[in-house]
Simulated assay, not measured.
Amino acid sequence: MKFMDDNLAIVVPCYNEFERLPKDEFISFMKKNTRCKIVFSDDGSKDNTLQLLKEIKESCPQRIFINVLESNGGKAAAVRSGVLYCYKHNLDFDKIAFLDSDLATSLKACVKVSKHIKKI
Results as ranks from 00 to 15, higher is better:
71 S>C: 03
106 S>Q: 09
39 V>A: 01
1 M>E: 08
96 I>L: 13
74 G>P: 02
69 L>R: 01
48 N>K: 01
32 K>M: 07
93 F>W: 13
20 R>N: 10
85 Y>I: 13
86 C>L: 12
64 I>M: 04
51 Q>V: 05
61 P>D: 05
105 T>E: 11
30 M>E: 04
14 C>H: 10
106 S>G: 08
96 I>K: 04
16 N>I: 03
81 S>A: 10
15 Y>R: 02
27 I>Q: 09
62 Q>W: 04
72 N>C: 01
76 A>F: 07
70 E>P: 00
63 R>T: 01
28 S>M: 09
103 L>C: 11
94 D>A: 13
68 V>Q: 04
13 P>R: 07
22 P>K: 08
36 C>S: 02
114 S>P: 11
17 E>Y: 12
65 F>Q: 05
78 A>K: 03
21 L>R: 04
1 M>H: 12
108 K>E: 15
69 L>T: 01
96 I>Y: 05
17 E>H: 09
18 F>W: 12
118 K>H: 14
6 D>N: 15
21 L>N: 03
102 D>K: 14
79 V>F: 07
71 S>R: 02
41 S>M: 02
48 N>R: 06
100 D>E: 15
32 K>A: 11
83 V>W: 08
80 R>T: 09
3 F>Q: 10
118 K>C: 11
2 K>I: 10
50 L>Q: 03
16 N>Y: 08
118 K>R: 15
91 L>P: 06
60 C>E: 01
113 V>D: 14
